[in-house]
Structures are given as structure tokens and as C-alpha cells.
Amino acid sequence: MSKKPRILVVNDDGITAPGIKALIEVAKELGDVTVVAPDSPQSGMGHAITIGKPLRLDKVNLYEGVEMYKCSGTPVDCVKLAVNKVFKGQKPDLCISGINHGLNNSINVIYSGTMSAAVEGAIESIPSIGFSLDDYTWDANFEDCKKYIKEICLQVMKNGLQQGTLLNVNFPNNSQPIKGIKICRQANAKWAEDFEERQDPYKRNYYWLTGVFQNNDKGEDSDVWALNNHYVSVVPVQFDMTAHHAISSLNQWTFDV
């Protein structure tokens, strides 16, 4: 009898988030599931790791038939501990992160704890995917995502991913039916940020991050376009951040030292 694939499920919204419950339900159809997730929300943590204080890893029983651990650290800590302590160096066949409550398209991929967990999986040479839904509410409906998650996971397990590459998958909101899947590039879009200034009861100033998402990309092959037109966006992502195209230009510089 063939051995079932071993699937690591992680997230950044915390181990009790509805998004990870939906992802676990899909993963259970595909293989043996192990969950290592933060014990509290860790959104916007990016690729942060815990240094200088101990990490806690405690076994929990939330869903039947699933090995689960809550971690006191970041999403990246969760993947590192999973590989080193839970799987004991025997790496899983697939690492899936999410389903995030909120989009991780365009520039958001840099800040995302969801995507950073998937990136860490890819660094460990594990085929990895991050999933996010355009709904920030705690009671978001993830049902429409499930068949697409299953199909994308099956394709990755069948075809593999190039070394150093992972997938960033975003789902449009539930305002209308999903039209299908689009393979995309990351849009040229960013947050125009502002900091709202307020005062605490002691008259000390503090600041609350706000902003507006600005899309400067008119192309019809980007993740922003796909989501705005109600497609699932799939963007291949790499963690090699070298600007290879700039090397030849920089080699023309003359350094007077």
C-alpha cells in the first residue's frame, strides 16, 4: 500500500482561526496532516524569527485525526520547529499556509506572515503554497476556496515546483462566483501609508497605521487584475532576491578604493 503524503499546515492568524480549519479540512483529503501554528495572531510578521527568548511548542487536540501543536513564536518559527522537532528532519511532502483572512497579493507578500511561513518551507526544499482570501472578517466563508485549494495542491504534488520557488495563491471575495484560475505576476501596487496620530489618557502621542492601496499597474496579467475580475490568482514566488538584471550594469561601475 502506498504511503500517504505528509502535509504540514501552518498560518499566521493563529491555531484557532477559521481559515486554518478550512485548510486542514482540505489537507485531510490529501494525506496525513500535521499542524504547527502560532498560539496567537501573528499577521504582518514577515520573515521574523524569535531570538533571545525561549520558544514553546505544546501539543493540542482541536480536530480529530490531526497532529497539532501551538507555538509561541512567529509563523517562520513554526516551520523551523516543525522540520527540526516534529518531523525530526524527515521533511513533509507539502507545506501549505493559510487560509489567511485578507489578501496577500502584490507588495503584501513582503509583509505577510502567511507567505513567509510558505517561503520558509521552500527554503527547506519542501513544495510550499500560501493561500489567502479577500475577506478580513473572522467569520469569513472559505467554502468556495476548498475545491481550488485541493486542485492546486494535487498539481503541486504531481508536478513539483522548481527549486527555490513557491506559490502565492489569492482568492477573490465572495461577492460573485469565481471564474477560474489565472497564473499571474505580482502587480506593481503598494500601500500609500499614513499614521493617524492620537493621544492616550496621559496625553502622550501614539500612532495608528492606516493607508490606501494604490494599483499603478494597468496590465491584465497581474494578480490585482485577476482578483478584481474574480479569478483565483496564482503567482510563482522566489526567495532569491538578487536583481540579476542589474549585475551587468553594476559591473560597469568604477570603485575608487
Rank of each mutant, 00 (worst) to 15 (best):
D194Y: 12
Q199S: 11
W191H: 12
N215Q: 01
R198Y: 03
A192N: 07
Y202L: 08
F195M: 08
A189L: 01
L209T: 13
R185M: 05
I181C: 13
L209I: 14
D194V: 12
G211N: 10
A192Q: 07
R198G: 05
N188V: 03
K182F: 13
V212Y: 01
A192Y: 05
F195G: 04
C184A: 01
E197G: 11
Q199V: 15
D194I: 12
G180F: 13
N216D: 09
K203L: 14
Q199E: 13
Q199G: 04
E196Y: 03
F213V: 08
R198A: 02
E197M: 15
R185N: 08
P201A: 06
F195W: 09
D200K: 12
Y206P: 05
T210F: 02
R204P: 00
W191K: 11
E196H: 03
E197Q: 15
T210P: 00
G180E: 15
Q199Y: 11
K203T: 08
K179G: 06
K203H: 15
W191L: 12
P201S: 03
G211W: 09
N215C: 05
N205S: 05
W208Q: 15
W208F: 15
F195K: 06
K190E: 12
F213R: 07
Y206I: 05
P201E: 03
Y202V: 09
E193C: 02
A192V: 06
L209V: 14
N216S: 08
